[in-house]
Amino acid sequence: MKSLEELKELRERFQKDLRVRKASDKPKVIVGMDSCGIDAGAREILKKALTEISQRDLDVVVTQTACIGECDNEPTVTVDLPNEPKIVYGDVTVDKVEKIIVDHVVEGNIVKDLVVAELNE
C-alpha cells in the first residue's frame, strides 16, 4: 500500500460487492418469482435485470418476491424507489427489462404502457 488514496480506491471497488448487505434504503428492482412467475419466465427476467444493473454499475438491489396476486400478468417487475410508490410492471419480457431500468430506475420516468399496478404503502 503506497498511499491513502490507493486504499480509498480499493475501498470504492470492493464496496460494490458488499452493497447487497446494506439494502434498506436503496432502490429495488423486484422480480415476481413465485411458481406463476417462474413458469412465465421470471428467471430470465431476473438474470437480465442483474446484468443491466451490473453493467451500469448502479447501486440498486435486485431481489425476488413471492406471488403478489398479479398471476395473470406474470412475469412482473416491481420498481421500488425510496419515497415513491412502488410501480408494478406486468407481462415483462427480456427485451423490455433494459427500458424499465434505463427509463425508470436511472431517469425516474415511469414506463406507463407496461404498468399494471401502483402500490402505496
Binding site: M1, S3, L4, L7, K8, L10, R11, F14, Q15, D17, L18
Partner: peptide
Amino acid sequence: IKEYIATGGYEAIGKALTE
C-alpha cells in the same frame, strides 16, 4: 481482506501514518 477494506478498514492507519 477485501471485505474489511470495503468497510473502511485500514483507513485509520492510513490517516495516522500520512496525516
